[in-house]
Write a protein that binds this DNA or RNA. Structure first.
Lengths: 246, 246
DNA sequence: TGGGCGCATTGACCCAGATCAAAAAACGTG
DNA sequence: CACGTTTTTTGATCTGGGTCAATGCGCCCA
């Protein structure tokens, strides 16, 4: 789809953004990106920015998982996005964060100072184009999530989440034995509940049910094994073929 | 926020897109846009494109309301976006529709043939920029909707929908008496249910409840009067001040 | 080696909203 | 204006998932 490479491992000094850019960029631009980038690390659970905060950087996730969520002041919260390695954080052209961002697991970001990044972007059309591309992907993901939140049962929600993470995670492959797959679940039950619009008790119950029926296996608390992906896929309620997810 | 004008009334020959462009464009580009545009009308309920269809145009809504929705093959559907006059339809750089698009009310679109539109876009950076801007707005709206779908009660959902439409509709002002407002509800109960992840019965009941409590008044079946917007706003469950919506 | 703390699981009960069913408005249309 | 069609309202009942509460399971650290 794109000649841009999205794997951190392929680019020692700086990941995605750098890599995303350098596929077509001149050396000058690479140097410029290098000069405005810096790394930041966060521990699991740590907040990164709050809704309404001024954000003076954009970033890409190097390792770990971050969450975007919206909160109602009575305490109800809804996660509206999950950032895995190679995902982009921040909104070029907008300096106020519209949601809370937090580290779900230990997290490393590669940050770029916003102003010079935007300047570079305006001067380099294909970067703007790439940003549009990525934003459209996020929009697709958000809308897929609307279907999950609005119309799926608890069981389908859990199956959908597992399927989505499995697809993402296993392309950056932790292990993929035959058609079975295995991955480290990066979310607590509570985080899953926040994402799926459920309570953590319901999440736990549904996971237990899937386990009981042999659709998934847990190794310890977080390592998930999916012996037969198609079987899980059926539980999502989705159209078999129709390409979901961004 | 932007020097681009979004009111069809201000631009006789072509609406939004044209107008959006001409704020900064040269005459050549205006002429070019004119040469690739055409109008299409649809009747209420008519489908415009199905998920998976090839789309050879992008468009902006001139009059009426269109819906974007995702369907599960067992019949459950979730509306994932609502297009009101001045909203943009279509995804530059992508030629396959990711959801079903339908006319909710009688609808007029101003369409641009996709290829030349994209070509113009690549040649004219500020159009790409504007598209990114608009996509970010859609993303915000989608994520606000995730909160509504995932965490709000039926009553809060209805109140939120009415508040959102009231804000949109009354800025293009049907009437705004004092702090009260009145507008034409462009959706059937079923469409509202599809949007809110409810059943049409629940929608009807909640509307009746709001009516009974004097928070809204109906004139006929579709004309809604909101005597005190703040009162409605409270029912949404949202933070009073925090700017919602795009 | 045994608290203590942060998840996770499980159980019992309840309620908001779904489902099923029917009546009542609204709306053409011949 | 009577009549069929569509949309909306209302009622009665059922149920998936929420709520409240207890218990279990690592895991760290003393």
């Amino acid at each position: 789809m794109s000649d841009i490479v999205f794997d951190h491992k392929e680019c020692g000094s700086c990941p995605i953004r750098h890599r995303a850019v350098c596929a077509r960029c001149e050396t000058d631009e690479l140097n410029e990106l290098d000069s405005i980038k810096y790394y930041r690390s966060y521990e699991a659970g740590q907040p990164i920015v709050w809704s309404g905060d001024r954000m003076d950087f954009v970033a890409s996730v190097v390792t770990g998982v971050a969450s975007l969520s919206q909160a109602m002041e009575d305490g109800r919260t809804q996660m509206v996005g999950l950032l895995l390695p190679s995902d982009f954080l921040g909104r070029p052209g907008r300096d106020v964060a519209p949601y809370d961002v937090a580290a779900v697991s230990n997290l490393t970001l590669c940050c770029f100072r916003r102003k010079p990044f935007e300047a570079l972007m305006t001067r380099t059309p294909h970067i703007a184009q790439r940003l549009l591309e990525m934003t459209l992907d996020e929009l697709d993901a958000a809308r897929e999530w609307m279907l999950i939140l609005g119309r799926k049962t608890a069981r389908e929600k859990i199956a959908s989440l597992l399927a989505i993470i499995a697809r993402r995670e296993s392309s950056l492959a932790l292990k993929s034995t035959g058609d079975g797959m295995m991955f480290e679940l990066p979310l607590t039950r509570e985080a899953m509940a926040d994402y799926l619009g459920l309570t953590l008790e319901t999440v736990s119950r549904q996971i237990s049910a899937l386990k009981r029926e042999g659709i998934i296996t847990l190794e310890g608390k977080r390592r998930v094994i999916i012996p037969d992906f198609d079987r899980l896929q059926i539980e999502t309620g989705d159209d078999m073929d129709g390409g979901m997810m961004a």
